[in-house]
């Protein structure tokens, strides 16, 4: 019983910042502190007219969509290889691919910065950010897709090939539908990570900032903080919706693959 109380208190600790966010987003004061003064929706209205914010959001959406597609494709390759094939050094290679999960983001950022600027002598663009985001998102995609591929019987595909389908069409017609919920969940997670990632984007963005980089700039100006709160409220609401969809799909995928749900994204 006391454990349950502790767990609920812990959840409150986890949610404390998120609960405060909408409170200040609707608060009619430029200072982010208690006591609250009154209700307003002005800060949301300001968001709608801010041109440079719109440009940053557009950038971030572009980066996040491409990242989601590429990292899910790479994750699909790795998860399929891990589940269905045997090859030499398998554990080592899979561990190597998962390594970005524990690599500090600043290390990824500065090492790619050095390569792009000094070695390749290229400029920064959205594509440099995409390259780095795909690297850090792929391990998460693999973790989710592994769940979808677990217990997926390889003989299903073999049966389809025995019945005259080519290797590719056997994959498309048999395996793909079974792992589809996992694929969509993986894309949603990669999208969410990329949209929210700041440390790497800060190092690798060119002249046009992404949304987190833009928010970072705003945090320095006290006057713009309420607008940041409004933006944050929208972002949190959106990511909760996306994550809920991803979770429901992940569960459906597990059910299709006939695995008992052990829960969790990781």
């Amino acid at each position: 019983m006391s454990l349950r109380i502790y767990a609920i208190a812990y959840l409150l600790f986890l949610y404390a910042p998120i609960i405060l966010l909408p409170i200040f987003a609707f608060n009619d004061a430029t200072i982010i502190a208690f006591p609250l003064s009154g209700f307003t929706t002005n800060w949301f209205a300001e968001l709608a007219t801010n041109k440079s914010l719109h440009a940053a959001v557009e950038n971030s959406l572009f980066i996040a969509v491409i990242t989601a597609l590429l990292s899910t494709w790479l994750g699909l390759c790795a998860a399929r290889a891990g589940a269905m094939h045997q090859f030499p050094l398998k554990a080592g290679i899979m561990g190597f691919i998962m390594l970005p999960l524990v690599l500090p983001e600043i290390i990824v950022a500065v090492s790619l910065l050095v390569v792009v600027v000094q070695v390749l002598e290229l400029g920064m663009s959205n594509w440099t950010i995409i390259a780095a985001h795909v690297l850090i998102c792929t391990p998460f995609c693999i973790a989710i897709l592994n769940g979808a591929f677990q217990n997926l019987d390889p003989s299903l595909e073999e049966a389809a090939m025995d019945l005259g389908e080519s290797r590719f069409s056997a994959f498309r017609l048999v395996t793909l539908p079974l792992v589809m919920p996992g694929i969509i969940a993986s894309m949603l997670i990669a999208f969410t990570i990329s949209l929210d990632e700041f440390i790497i984007a800060f190092f690798l963005s060119g002249s046009s900032p992404t949304m987190p980089v833009y928010i970072w700039g705003l945090l320095r100006f006290p006057a713009s903080l309420p607008v940041v709160m409004a933006l944050g409220t929208i972002l949190v609401a959106m990511s909760i919706i996306l994550l809920t969809i991803a979770e429901l799909l992940r569960r459906r995928g597990m059910a299709r693959a006939g695995v008992k749900d052990k829960g969790g994204f990781l």
Binding site: Y15, P17, I189, T192, D196, V228, S239, I240, L243
Partner: peptide, 22 residues
């Protein structure tokens, strides 16, 4: 169990910068 894990992971995925600021 998966509902609890879901609740635990949600704050982790949401706007890191703003969470730190709060």
């Amino acid at each position: 169990k998966s509902l609890w894990l879901f609740l635990i992971t949600i704050p982790f995925w949401t706007s890191y910068l703003i969470r730190v600021f709060l």
